[in-house]
Design a protein around this nucleic acid. Structure first.
Lengths: 227, 227
DNA sequence: TTTACTTGCATTGTATACAAAGATACTATT
DNA sequence: AATAGTATCTTTGTATACAATGCAAGTAAA
């Protein structure tokens, strides 16, 4: 099961087109501000305009596009302030998820998370600069903790709404060489807190981890703007 | 500007039907588990199936209905666990909003909030048992604090997604005679914390306020189940 | 009597066609 | 030359029609 397919069964054409467009946006093939012309999408993905429109509406629910009546849909474009807002909420909700996970995850699940990090360590040692897989590993780590919160609504808000936008920025910004190693160290401290069932510490560490992530993102965005 | 119309301009038929259905669900005219038959809705609200389907999709984005491919849409039905999950998230996000509001709201806005509570006090003294307007007042209070957080994403998540579901339960459960007075006292303490710019206390008080709200809701639901 | 299969019906998903709103380009006037 | 107004054209919103899926009722066999 890949994170790409979004763990959702696809039964209708609208679902399929939605998944395709979602990937295209997250990967940066469709960039912020780009227009989604319905007729053009029909020619690209097949089908008729009806399922295409449904797909666009689903993307709107995921906060990936903004629709304006009679003017069409465009890929969302965030100001720096809005990006900070998103990360502020993400900090709160993932901090919460981590706190709850410390109280509710099974010992086995925590052990499995520790094993996952060990695997990441060897991956980073071998594939220096293969940032794509490292990013996927990072997402997997966060995903498991969110699942560990055992709060279904929290899971939907984080995985179903916030994370699509977060992924959109993560995939597109380059990662510095030393960041994966630093992130791994932070992940390991979080797992230690989980294993110790120290909910307060686990929450604090997760919040800081995400703060660092935002700082990096802001720096990279400024560099790209400058170049 | 009424809370009912959801402060969103309505330019298309789909938007209009969505707003109508939203009200119907929040008011309990459509009850959890009820099916939304597209043809029936066409006969009730006019238009054709296309805008009706769009309206239903918008309701899905608000977490008010659940659609299953080839099986139709039904009003969401929450287990007690899921209701607790929702309030757990609400506690976190409104606590956050209150903390941020203590740091970011203008002095004028805080004063206006205090004035609003004074008005509520006289309303409660006069309209004993007129719980509808008291509930509207409560929503207005929470709404203003959320706006005060100055975090647009947080506002969208709370007002655009969580609150529709919360309202759905609030309108339908009766309120005890003494609860409005107790709630007002809690609101007043929160405003005092905001005025003192005590973010930590403001967050704590808001979290407790929502916890009380959940306890009341659980008690009422159990009573209704028993009867 | 129960169960499994088949057939018909109701409902949703999709395609095509038409209406209306917005954008653009051109012309006329100041 | 600049601007306002108008006409055309593109694009979205909506209606109607068809296809396909799922559900239910009814029948036949065990």
């Amino acid at each position: 099961m890949s994170l790409e397919t979004d763990f959702e069964a696809v039964h209708t054409l609208a679902d399929k087109v939605c998944a395709e467009l979602c990937m295209a946006i997250e990967r940066g093939e469709l960039r912020p501000g780009d227009k989604l012309n319905e007729q053009a999408l029909v020619e690209r993905y097949g089908g008729s305009r009806i399922p295409i429109r449904e797909a666009i509406q689903k993307l709107e629910a995921r906060h990936l596009v903004k629709r304006i009546p009679h003017a069409g849909a465009r890929v969302v474009k965030h100001t720096l302030k809005e990006l900070r807002d998103i990360y502020e909420v993400r900090q709160e909700l993932e901090g919460m998820a981590c706190r709850l996970a410390a109280q509710r995850m099974s010992d086995n699940a925590i052990q499995a998370l520790a094993d996952l990090l060990a695997a990441h360590a060897t991956t980073i040692a071998h594939d220096k600069g293969q940032s794509y897989y490292q990013k996927a590993g990072d997402l997997d780590f966060h995903y498991r903790i969110i699942q560990g919160s055992d709060n279904h609504r929290l899971q939907r808000m984080l995985c179903g709404e916030l994370y699509h936008v977060v992924r959109m920025y993560r995939y597109q910004t380059s990662t510095s060489k030393q960041r994966p190693l630093q992130a791994l160290a932070e992940h390991q401290r979080i797992v230690e807190a989980l294993a110790a069932r120290d909910a307060e510490l686990a929450e604090l560490l997760m919040r800081r981890h995400i703060q660092v992530s935002l700082n990096n993102l802001e720096r990279l965005m400024k560099e790209e703007l400058a170049s």
